[in-house]
Design a protein around this nucleic acid. Structure first.
Lengths: 236, 236
DNA sequence: CCTGTGACAGCACTGAGTGCCATGAGCGGC
DNA sequence: GCCGCTCATGGCACTCAGTGCTGTCACAGG
């Protein structure tokens, strides 16, 4: 109840940023559930109603830029040509998300610690990740429309890509942003590509005449045969 | 406010079942969000506080048996021997969940229609599915402890199994429970097994002396090679 | 000078979820 | 047969997230 709004009357929408800053300050010093929306708006010096103008729910303030990132990913998938190898394309789309996290390492690490210990935020994060996964799956469904079991393959590959991405992301977050994020995610996505096709490396200079011969007993389990192929092809 | 509790003084906890029945009756006739907890307890003839004794939240009443099913799956994974092929084991665990759905087809279909159109329930379902996925991933992490990238492979395979299961489950639910559920899920899981190893079929009477020769260009995507192997071996 | 239009504050309300206490039914001990 | 224990339940009051509505102020254009 004073004139604490003079310091944020400069740019276009500093109010949103001020709310995020105030929210994280309180979340970090007393915890997410111990902080009410009233506390946040009091610290930011704005009205309670304005909070819900910028964030549909209290959870949304923790993921302030995912909406934009999801839009970016959708646009990235839409602008691709039909010549792209689909699996590689979705892997590149996943790298887009990681880059967004890597742009603000300290913020991402703080948020990671929060979501790790607050069940409500973990649940909300799942719904965010789910939308990314759906975007990837929808893209793959379109690309696989002609295949038999196209939607099945699309769903499974999208889930695998997201899981690999999350595995790399969490590993990077646990290192406090010290590891090289892109190398970690490249390694993880290479595993998915090796399993589902889509040449994992540029592999531009491959010799079409190169052949490889594999001999296996019929009784051997298929995964042994695949392992044999993989090692012969020099992958994984 | 009358003596409407005489009809539920027989078994052990009929109150819980009565609440589920009352909730679904109201959800189906006026929708989930248009139904308050007060409406449910009024119809069931019990106190409001009792609802939250049996269900931690309003969403939980929609998934009344998932807690038990998750415990069953965890037990199933724990009781397996180390000789089991891990990927096949998690696939069998996933079949356990599908069987739970198939036990009450009409209930499952009704719930599917609800969760499909209520965003809040979809989000809640994600957190339920996530716990299944974690159970599978934890099991695979233990089994892959010796492998390089064991946790990565565990996470990716668990996600793929869950995605395949969900794809089959939704396909079955969309058919109003008319399709053969087990056949659908077998087909979906076979795809995952073919990608990640684990012999998909019993394959008992194989001839150890039989050999097969595969020729592939080095540039061909791995999944094409696997397809070639599969067709040559006469599987799938 | 008047009049939209849009961002904001304040207020009142609904509904989910929780803590606390009273009641009442079953039950073992004395 | 009575006392006291426990446990399931009901009822009440409270917090807090989220929404609808209204009033106000700044700023645009005529």
């Amino acid at each position: 109840m004073s004139s604490e709004k003079a310091d944020l009357g400069n740019g276009k929408p500093p109010m949103r940023d001020a709310l995020v800053a105030a929210a994280f300050q309180l979340f970090l010093e007393r915890g997410y559930e111990q902080t009410t929306v009233d506390d946040i708006v009091a610290l930011a010096g704005v009205g309670r109603r304005s909070f819900f103008r910028y964030f549909p729910s209290k959870e949304d303030v923790v993921f302030p830029d995912h909406e934009r990132c999801l839009a970016d990913m959708t646009a990235f998938l839409a602008e691709g040509s039909d010549d792209d190898e689909p699996v590689r394309r979705v892997c590149d789309a996943a790298r887009l998300v990681l880059r967004m996290y890597a742009e603000n390492p300290t913020f991402s690490v703080q948020r990671y610690r929060l979501t790790k210990q607050v069940p409500g935020l973990r649940a909300y994060e799942l719904s965010v990740v789910w939308r990314y996964e759906r975007a990837l799956a929808e893209y793959l469904r379109r690309r696989f429309a002609a295949r038999r079991d196209g939607t099945l393959q699309a769903d499974v590959i999208a889930a695998a890509v997201v899981a690999a991405h999350n595995n790399a992301l969490r590993s990077w977050l646990r290192s406090d942003g010290q590891d090289e994020a892109s190398a970690t995610v490249d390694h993880a996505l290479a595993y998915v590509q090796s399993a589902f096709g889509g040449a994992p490396a540029p592999l531009a200079e491959s010799q079409p005449e190169d052949v490889v011969v594999v001999v296996s007993r019929r009784g051997a389990p298929l995964w042994r045969v695949v392992q044999e192929i993989e090692s012969t092809l020099g992958r994984a």
